[in-house]
Design a protein around this nucleic acid. Structure first.
Length: 589
RNA sequence: GGGGAUGUAGCUCAAUUGGUUAGAGCACCGGCCUGUCACGCCGGAGGUUGUGGGUUCGAGCCCCAUCAUCCUCGCCA
């Protein structure tokens, strides 16, 4: 029988003393004292202690004695103040307990595969029994936070006059970008829908339709290999607006970012947020999404290297390599020779063929290559370049632009963490702007879009489209939080002539462009307003504000690194009949 | 597709150099207990050491293969 609840397990206080209440929930713990039985009852609001006393009758007590962890029950009883000195300050409801007069067991439960309030089980088990895993208060807290972040997004966007519109999940495959998830059409043999990588084109079309300010918390799909912060399906706050340039989109988005920072980061943000151009970010941090909670900037030391007798540097110069480094304050004391070998190996994992390290001492440098850096002017220049003091550690990589950037930016992040150069609970928000429009793809022997193919070049760079496309900067902006890309967007190309020119640079013939994007070009020709937008990674923001390092814990039913669902068994096989209907013959080679 | 880590009781972990009967805490089962909330006390049960092969007098430990999970490179407009 259902004992319909009058309160949740998180709300009873001294004010309720004397009331008759009913609670529903799961048995979180039981303590049997023979004459007295305690049950901790849990729901998503909290835990309340229920006591079964002898006065309630032997039958009820013996029923209570049968209860085990994770049984789902309803109880009716009277709220009583706890005996003086017996309050539990760890519980919101710890000042009271419910003296049970009635118990209804809705469902028994076997001994669970792991303890809901015990140590965190391994992830395989958690994912297999996700419905139990999600009972754990740590995870419940994440999903409550996720809901609150979503609500804040909807409220702030609505206040700024944005309209929520849904776009299709079944769309058509686009040739650029990530691999698509495909859905075969039953009605049209050999034709396939694609799940959206983002609602990009639809939201642009909504601008052409005059919807002016659109948003959506949209599910996106990408069939690429997964990582700690990457799932095949994820959600983003997708935004598009008309009659704007890049500053307008950033300013608008800062309103939301400030609201989130205030509510979830406990911080009053100073606006506008710091902006850094892509080129400067790459130069100073070797990364287009630098973590700016700490300095540790990259410095070019090619000119100093030239003055040394170090062969590695001379060969680097001949190869046209860059010679760059960072200086870790206090690093010489922190890192042993063995640690430094570890750092060298770490740099090697990003392609660096070596890592020059110099321990800065009062008068000299120490280290296996220090003998190449003994000239007074070399010493002085390096100290000045890195603002190096005794006890610091200078790390130098000589390699291509890409390798020095990758190796040093990763070293930078690692050193800052290990040397505790920032508060890991703090947040730093910034914009990286003016990305290159195009990147040269040597494998495909053509340009590919750095962001996506619908991006507007910066007006002053438009002439370069014809002369030096690689130099064209885009009206693009990424929101970076703590070294993670929290979102990104662009001003779109609303001019069909420029759009066609970009398609051509991407290696699309006019016919191909028309075949793939004819509807977009048509829309652009039919009164497309200047427009642009942005998308914020919803799951990533939840992860950030929840203090997590893994996106799976921000998604109720996530996939493993190989894209499987350990609970449902997806992806699974299907009946031959289903395949026949879809005109698919499996290739079992 | 490549690299790395892990896999021991239901769970979290331990097990020295390859050497006795693979241990502990929690959970579980039985008993006792009227104020616990990490209850306590007494007793008990629970293991094909992921799987398959190999080396060895002897393998949780060494070798090979394989599976799973995690991290990572490539990839991710």
């Amino acid at each position: 029988m259902l004992l319909k609840r009058t309160h949740t397990c998180g709300e009873l206080t001294k004010e309720h003393v004397g009331q008759t209440v009913a609670l529903n929930g799961w048995v979180d713990a039981w303590r049997d004292f023979g004459g007295l039985v305690f049950i901790d009852l849990r729901d998503r609001y909290g835990v309340t202690q229920v006591v079964f006393e002898p006065e309630a009758g032997a039958d009820l007590q013996s029923q209570a004695r049968e209860l085990r962890n994770e049984y789902v029950v309803g109880i009716r009883g009277t709220v009583a103040a706890r005996l003086p000195g017996k309050e539990n300050p760890k519980l919101k409801t710890g000042a009271v307990e419910v003296r049970a007069v009635e118990l209804s067991v809705y469902n028994a439960s076997p001994t669970p595969p792991f303890e809901i309030n015990g140590p965190e089980p391994n992830e395989e088990l958690r994912l297999k029994y996700r419905f139990l895993d999600l009972r754990r208060p740590e995870l419940q807290r994440v999903f409550i936070l996720r809901h609150e972040i979503g609500q804040l997004m909807r409220r702030v966007m609505t206040e700024m006059n944005f309209l929520e519109v849904e776009t299709p999940v079944l769309g058509r495959s686009t040739p650029e970008g990530a691999r698509d998830f495909l859905v075969p059409s039953r009605v049209h043999p050999s034709h396939y829908y694609a799940l959206p990588q983002s609602p990009q084109l639809y939201k642009q079309l909504l601008m052409v339709s005059g919807f002016d300010r659109y948003f959506q918390i949209a599910r996106c799909f990408r069939d690429e290999d997964l990582r700690a912060t990457r799932q095949p399906e994820f959600s983003q706050l997708d935004v598009e607006m008309s009659f704007v340039e890049d500053e307008d989109v950033m300013t608008m988005m800062e309103t939301l970012v400030a609201a989130m920072a205030k509510q979830f980061g406990g911080e009053e943000l100073k606006l506008p947020l710091y902006r850094i151009e892509y080129h400067d970010a790459m130069e100073r941090y070797g990364n287009d999404r630098p973590d700016l909670r700490y300095g540790l900037e990259l410095k070019d030391v090619a000119d100093v290297a030239e003055e040394t007798e170090f062969r590695v540097f001379q060969q680097a110069k001949e190869a046209g390599y860059r010679i760059r480094g960072i200086c870790a304050p206090g690093g010489a004391e922190k890192y042993s020779r063995k640690d430094l070998d570890g750092l060298t190996e770490f740099a090697g994992s990003f392609g660096a063929k070596g890592l020059v390290w110099l321990k800065v001492e009062a008068e000299t440098f120490a280290g296996p290559t220090a003998k190449f850096f003994t000239k007074p002017e070399v010493q002085a220049k390096l100290r000045e370049r890195f603002d190096a003091k005794a006890g610091d550690l200078i790390l130098i990589v000589a390699d291509t632009q890409a390798v020095t950037s990758q190796a040093l930016s990763n070293l930078r992040a690692r050193l800052a963490a290990e040397l505790e150069m920032y508060d890991p609970r703090s947040f730093h928000y910034s914009w990286v702007i003016r990305f290159p429009l195009l990147a040269w793809d040597a494998d495909e022997n053509r340009y590919v879009a750095e962001h996506h193919p619908f991006t507007m070049p910066m007006a002053e760079d438009l002439p370069l489209l014809d002369t030096d496309p690689a130099k064209v900067r885009a009206q693009a902006y990424d929101l970076v939080v703590n070294g993670e890309e929290a979102g990104g967007g662009t001003i779109r190309c609303h001019d069909p002539v420029i759009q066609s020119k970009i398609f051509a640079l991407l290696g699309l013939t006019p016919e191909e462009a028309d075949e793939k994007f004819g509807f977009l070009l048509s829309a652009l020709r039919n009164g497309a307003p200047p427009h642009g937008g942005i998308a914020l990674g919803y799951d990533r923001l939840v992860m950030l504000y929840a203090g997590l390092t893994n996106i799976r814990d921000c998604i109720a039913f996530p996939k493993t690194a190989k894209g499987t669902d350990l609970m449902t068994g997806a992806p699974g096989t299907v009946a031959a009949r289903q395949l026949r209907e879809l005109h698919i013959r499996p290739n079992l080679d």
